[in-house]
């Protein structure tokens, strides 16, 4: 009962926030609203017991992308340009896609079902072997850090490279601008 209530209230707030984002023209308010949107979806993930996903959502959505959006606003204009196109075709596309996704969920196993394919395949094996193989209390940590260690290493390398690339690009841009300032 409590779960249903919590999910309903959170989803209503999520939808209201999304509608407000669509209708708002001041981009600063849109940034604030999208930060709240991401916090709300993080809360929904928490109610689904996916705290790691929720934390990623909050860190990226409410933290980093808010800062990035504000930086973009600082470089451009803070008011949205009115679109001259009608929103009819995009609305139809979104509705059809949403209906297809809902249709796709009909075949999925029930939420938390013990005989779902995800629980039957390798999950029990990992749960049984982790105490002997790795000896870490958290199975997720064991999977990420050891069973999929090379995968995690590759991901870290990719993110690290991307960060260095962005830093190089931005610092080059900054130096060029300072030179232009001195010439002026």
């Amino acid at each position: 009962m409590i779960d249903t209530l919590t999910n309903t209230v959170l989803f209503v707030m999520l939808v209201l926030t999304a509608l407000a984002i669509v209708r708002m023209e001041r981009l600063f308010a849109v940034v604030m609203l999208s930060s709240v949107f991401s916090l709300l979806s993080a809360l929904l993930f928490v109610t689904l017991d996916a705290v790691d996903v929720a934390f990623t959502e909050a860190a990226v959505g409410a933290g980093i992308s808010t800062v990035l959006m504000l930086g973009t606003i600082a470089l451009t204009k803070p008011i949205a340009k009115r679109s001259r196109h009608t929103a009819f075709v995009p609305l139809i596309v979104v509705c059809v896609t949403g209906a297809a996704l809902v249709y796709g969920t009909l075949d999925m196993p029930a939420f938390g079902a013990y005989d779902a394919p995800a629980q039957m395949h390798v999950g029990p094996d990992y749960l049984a072997r982790t105490p002997d193989d790795i000896d870490v209390p958290n199975v997720v940590t064991a999977i990420l850090g050891s069973y999929r260690g090379y995968d995690t290493l590759g991901e870290t390398a990719v993110v690290f490279t991307a960060g260095i690339g962005v830093l190089l690009l931005l610092s080059g841009l900054r130096r060029r601008r300072e030179d232009e300032d001195e010439e002026v």
Binding site: A58, A62, G63, T66, V67, G71, A74, R174
Partner: peptide, 20 residues
């Protein structure tokens, strides 16, 4: 996270920019 993003927003208010 909340603290960091609020600091970023307030910095934006003060300087109208995020970078240095």
């Amino acid at each position: 996270i909340n603290f960091v993003s609020t600091i970023a927003i307030l910095k934006f208010f003060r300087y109208r920019a995020i970078g240095d």
